[in-house]
Structures are given as C-alpha cells and as structure tokens.
Computed example of a mutant assay.
Amino acid sequence: MERGGAAALSDAELAARLRRRDARAFDELYARYHPRIFSFLVRLSGRRDVAEDLFQDTWLAVARHADRLAEDTDLAAWLFTIARNRYRSHRRSAVLDLARAALFSREPAPAAPGPEAAADARAEVAALEGALRSLAAGHREVLLLGAVEGLEAAQVAMVLGIREDAARKRLSRARAELAACLEKRNAERPRTGSTPSISAADAADRRARGGSR
C-alpha cells in the first residue's frame, strides 16, 4: 500500500518507532486507527459524548505508554484493550445512559429508496439498535470487536483477557442472542410494506459472519 508516494509502515515497524517516541509514528497510528477506536467506543457506550471523552483518554494513555510496547505487540489488540479499559473504568464510576446506541452496521443506506423501503429500513435499524442495547455487556462488546470491527478471534481474546476458544464461544452465543432478540422484535413490529426477502436476524447474522473471521 502506498501513501504519498512512500510505502506505508507495517504495524511492526510502527510499533518500533512508537517505542522510540517518534512523533510521526504516533500521527500514523492515529490516522490508521482512530475511526475504528471512536466507532467502537460510541457503540460500546451508546453515547457520543461519553465516547468522545473516552476517546481522548484512550489516546492520552497510548501516548504515555507507547515507549513500553513489546516487539511482538499486536497494535490493533493493544489499542482496543486500552479503549475497553477506559470504558470499564468509566462504568465503575458512573451510571451510563444507554438510551442511544450507534448503528450496528457501517454500510451506507441505499440511495433514494422508495417510501415503503425507507420505512422498512428505518425499522430494521431501530430493531438493530434496540437489540444491541439489550444485550449483556459481555455479549455487546464481543460482537463489536469480532463482528463489527472484524478483529481475529485471537485478537478479541487478547482484548478481553480470555482464551481464544472462549472468545469464539462467546461470539457465537452473542450472535445467537442477538438473532433471537431481532426475531422477537421483527415478529412484534408491524410491516409498512411488503415482507423483505430476508429477516432482520438473517441480515444481522450475515453482517456478523462477514465481519468476523
């Protein structure tokens, strides 16, 4: 991959420069990962204002500890671990308002849908938001890491501090819980138009399977 005519640094090279406190390496790390870290925190907390504070705390921690990186550090897992720890610390000190949650899928909506299709799309999004909010914290975070952010099972295990096989089992159970919740919501809500060819649960499961490895 080329950026500005020069080959982009690998994560290993980037980690080596971070250990030397190379300011340009920090800028590169931020450019490479900040959208994913912020998205993760928004979805995990359900509040953009909380996520903004946690996001700043995350990068301050990165700057403080970058020189302690081990040579074999997985940068993605390291960053998501820091972000998750900031969130967990926040939860211990405050009661979070989970009235808002970010979209489960980052896919853009279809251009110029018809009125019925638009209404169904909004209902599907609302169902996903509500279902994701209703999950236990452990299931919500493993879905965000493995299904939405697409981290490998080994990386998810590192972030959560559990074994890889346990991470796989937790992700499988979280998918099943989400699918069941979506099926229930899908059955309860009225349809504004024709019945879609796939259910909300099927769509969510396909997104999850497409984002995980």
Rank of each mutant, 00 (worst) to 15 (best):
residue 5 G to K: 02
residue 125 V to Y: 08
residue 93 S to F: 07
residue 209 R to I: 11
residue 24 R to E: 15
residue 89 S to C: 10
residue 29 L to S: 10
residue 24 R to T: 12
residue 103 L to Q: 12
residue 107 E to I: 13
residue 176 A to D: 12
residue 121 A to Y: 10
residue 8 A to F: 03
residue 143 L to C: 02
residue 185 R to W: 07
residue 34 H to E: 13
residue 109 A to Y: 05
residue 78 W to S: 01
residue 183 E to N: 12
residue 155 Q to D: 07
residue 1 M to K: 03
residue 143 L to S: 00
residue 34 H to F: 11
residue 211 G to N: 01
residue 158 M to L: 11
residue 6 A to Y: 08
residue 204 A to W: 01
residue 196 P to H: 00
residue 36 R to G: 11
residue 149 E to G: 05
residue 14 L to N: 07
residue 206 R to N: 08
residue 91 R to I: 13
residue 142 V to D: 04
residue 65 H to W: 10
residue 56 Q to K: 13
residue 36 R to L: 07
residue 92 R to G: 08
residue 102 A to L: 05
residue 139 H to N: 15
residue 97 D to M: 07
residue 187 A to S: 10
residue 204 A to Y: 02
residue 161 G to K: 00
residue 24 R to D: 15
residue 39 S to A: 15
residue 136 A to P: 12
residue 161 G to T: 00
residue 72 D to A: 15
residue 131 A to H: 05
residue 181 C to P: 03
residue 102 A to D: 09
residue 104 F to G: 01
residue 46 G to Q: 01
residue 9 L to E: 11
residue 158 M to T: 11
residue 193 G to S: 02
residue 124 E to S: 09
residue 75 L to E: 04
residue 115 P to R: 11
residue 130 G to L: 12
residue 63 A to T: 14
residue 56 Q to F: 06
residue 182 L to I: 03
residue 64 R to D: 15
residue 115 P to F: 10
residue 153 A to W: 08
residue 83 A to W: 03
residue 210 G to A: 15
residue 73 T to G: 04
residue 153 A to Y: 10
residue 101 A to G: 11
residue 41 L to D: 00
residue 62 V to N: 07
residue 172 S to I: 04
residue 83 A to I: 01
residue 10 S to N: 05
residue 1 M to E: 06
residue 113 P to E: 05
residue 100 R to G: 10
residue 132 L to S: 01
residue 119 A to T: 05
residue 82 I to E: 00
residue 121 A to S: 12
residue 34 H to V: 10
residue 115 P to H: 12
residue 195 T to Y: 13
residue 41 L to I: 00
residue 147 A to Q: 04
residue 134 S to K: 07
residue 95 V to E: 13
residue 132 L to T: 01
residue 112 A to V: 11
residue 194 S to T: 14
residue 20 R to E: 15
residue 54 L to H: 03
residue 157 A to F: 00
residue 125 V to F: 05
residue 129 E to D: 09
residue 9 L to F: 08
residue 167 A to Y: 00
residue 55 F to Y: 14
residue 163 R to Y: 00
residue 23 A to S: 11
residue 126 A to C: 04
residue 92 R to F: 03
residue 155 Q to L: 01
residue 50 V to Y: 10
residue 102 A to E: 08
residue 21 R to A: 10
residue 185 R to L: 15
residue 75 L to S: 05
residue 181 C to I: 03
residue 48 R to N: 06
residue 147 A to C: 08
residue 25 A to E: 06
residue 180 A to T: 11
residue 176 A to Y: 11
residue 146 G to A: 15
residue 158 M to E: 14
residue 85 N to C: 02
residue 184 K to V: 03
residue 35 P to H: 07
residue 5 G to A: 04
residue 195 T to W: 13
residue 119 A to K: 04
residue 111 A to T: 11
residue 196 P to R: 00
residue 204 A to D: 04
residue 108 P to R: 08
residue 48 R to V: 13
residue 74 D to N: 13
residue 62 V to K: 01
